[in-house]
């Protein structure tokens, strides 16, 4: 029984954590541009150092 008394609150707590995380992610606009997020990872944004200095 002691096992259950630990197990159930732990399960509920973790589940609730997931739920809160999901609510946060929708509110923060994480799903606004799924396609863009998938493609952006491919952008090579670290150009030659010289360029950075010129622009900066």
């Amino acid at each position: 029984m002691t096992a259950l008394l630990w197990l159930i609150p732990a399960a509920l707590g973790l589940g609730a954590l997931g739920l809160v995380a999901f609510f946060w992610s929708t509110r923060a606009g994480q799903y606004d541009d799924l396609q863009g997020a998938a493609e952006r990872i491919l952008i090579d944004d670290d150009g030659p150092i010289v360029d950075d200095e010129e622009e900066g």
Binding site: A11, G15, A16, L19, T26
Partner: peptide
């Protein structure tokens, strides 16, 4: 509806566990 869906998903997972 998304919020309701998330809550229902959370609840059904936990109720199922029990």
């Amino acid at each position: 509806l998304v919020r309701a869906l998330a809550v229902a998903g959370f609840a059904s997972a936990n109720v199922m566990l029990l």
